[in-house]
Simulated scan of single mutants.
Amino acid sequence: MKTVWKVTTAAVLIGGSVLAGSLLNIQAEGAGTTPGTADDPVVTKSYVDQAIQQAINGGGGLSTPSTGSSSESSSEDGVQIVEVKPGKILVAAEGTEFIVRSGKAVIYSADSNGVADLTDGKDIPNGGAVANNHLLSFPREGRGIQVQDGDTHNLTVMVRGGYQIK
C-alpha cells in the first residue's frame, strides 16, 4: 500500500507541475519584438561614432572673443593643445572647456565669479588652484587660467572652444 501511495503522489505532483507550467507559459517581456523595428532599433558602432562626431563638430556655436590680444584662436573642430608661458593668461570664450595636463595653474577672473570644475563638481574662485586632469567649464568669456605665481614652468592645456592668450 505504501508503494501505491508513493506512485500516486508522484504522478499527481508531476501532472500538476506539467499543467501549471503549460498554463503559465508566457513570453518574457520584450522577447516578442523583431530586431530592427521601431520597437527594437539596431544600430552599429560606426553609426554611433559618426553621430557623436557630428554632435561634437556641428553642435558648437563657440566663438572667439575679439578683444585685443596677442594671440587668439577658435577650435570648433575639436581639441587643441596650448602652451601657456608664465606671465601669460589663457582666456576662454563663452562655453569653452579646458583640461590642464601639466603645470601649476590658477583661475583668472576679472570679477568675483569663478570657474566650474566639472570633475569635482565645485566652483573654483579667482586665484584658486586648478588640479591637473580636471575638466573646467567657462560659462562666460573673460575668465581663464594662468601659471601660478612663482612657477617658472609652462602650462600644457587641452582646449575645446575659443580662447585667446593675453
Rank of each mutant, 00 (worst) to 15 (best):
N132Y: 04
I145C: 03
G36Q: 03
T156Y: 01
V79S: 07
A11H: 11
T37E: 06
G59D: 06
T67V: 14
G60D: 11
K166L: 13
V91F: 03
Q53C: 01
T96H: 01
A92Y: 01
T37S: 14
T33N: 08
G16W: 14
P35E: 02
S22F: 13
S75H: 12
H134C: 01
N154P: 11
A28I: 07
I107R: 00
V115A: 00
A51E: 13
L13S: 13
L118E: 07
L135C: 11
T64A: 11
G32C: 06
L155N: 04
I99W: 00
N132M: 07
A38V: 06
R143E: 03
G15N: 08
K104M: 12
R143P: 03
A129V: 10
G36S: 04
A28C: 10
Y163V: 09
S74M: 14
E83I: 15
S137Q: 07
K45Q: 09
V159P: 01
K6P: 05
A20F: 08
Q50E: 14
G114Q: 00
T64K: 07
N132R: 12
S66Y: 09
T9K: 11
G128S: 04
Y163E: 04
T96Q: 04
V159L: 04
A110E: 08
Q54I: 05
S71Y: 04
G15C: 11
V12C: 10
A131C: 10
Y163M: 09
I107V: 14
A31M: 14
T64Y: 07
E97V: 02
I89A: 01
P41A: 01
V115W: 00
S63M: 13
Q164T: 05
G16L: 14
G61D: 12
G162L: 09
S46H: 10
A129S: 14
N113E: 14
E29P: 02
K166R: 15
G114A: 02
L13G: 06
Y163I: 08
M158C: 09
G32M: 09
T44R: 12
K166Y: 09
G36A: 04
A129W: 01
N113I: 06
V82M: 05
E141M: 06
T156V: 11
G142C: 05
V84D: 00
S75R: 07
H134T: 06
A28P: 08
I26K: 06
S109Y: 00
L135Q: 14
T67P: 12
E83C: 11
G127D: 00
T33W: 08
A55H: 05
E97A: 07
V42D: 04
T8F: 15
E141Y: 10
G21C: 06
T3R: 15
L155Y: 02
I14L: 12
W5L: 15
E76S: 15
R160F: 09
P41S: 03
V115S: 00
V43P: 13
Q146D: 04
Q164N: 11
K2L: 14
Q80W: 02
Y108W: 06
Q27G: 10
G121K: 05
S137G: 10
G128E: 00
A110M: 07
T96L: 02
K2T: 14
H153F: 10
G32Y: 06
Q53T: 11
K6V: 15
V91K: 07
D149L: 03
G127Y: 00
R140V: 15
D39P: 00
V4P: 06
M1E: 13
G36R: 03
A110N: 05
K104P: 04
S74D: 12
G142D: 01
V115R: 00
F98C: 01
S73I: 08
D117C: 08
I124C: 00
T64V: 12
